[in-house]
């Protein structure tokens, strides 16, 4: 059994309104040295397969991420 993490982030050139909203809110809470925030998604997938890495990459590309506007990274955890 493998635990595989998938991190999905908007591509760098794509506008991230949520990250910007967080950035705008931070000075009001006293954090006035933050210059950029990007928001993404983190998934943990438990999978029992020999080709876990390949399968999860396929899952990420077809369901978890929208490859038109997002990049993703797959890595094993524990």
């Amino acid at each position: 059994m493998a635990k595989v993490a998938v991190d999905v982030m908007l591509k760098p050139e794509i506008l991230d309104p949520q990250g910007q909203a967080i950035l705008r809110a931070l000075p009001g809470l006293g954090f006035d040295q933050v210059t950029a925030v990007r928001q993404g998604k983190h998934f943990e997938v438990d999978i029992d397969a020999a080709d876990a890495q390949a399968q999860v990459e396929k899952i990420a590309a077809t369901l978890l991420a929208n490859p038109v506007i997002e990049d993703f990274a797959v890595r094993f955890i524990d």
Binding site: L10, K11, E13, I14, L15, D16, P17, Q20, A21, V68, I69
Partner: peptide, 12 residues
Amino acid sequence: KRPSVQVGDPFT
């Protein structure tokens, strides 16, 4: 050929 997609922000 695909240019990067424009993402809208309706609140802006």
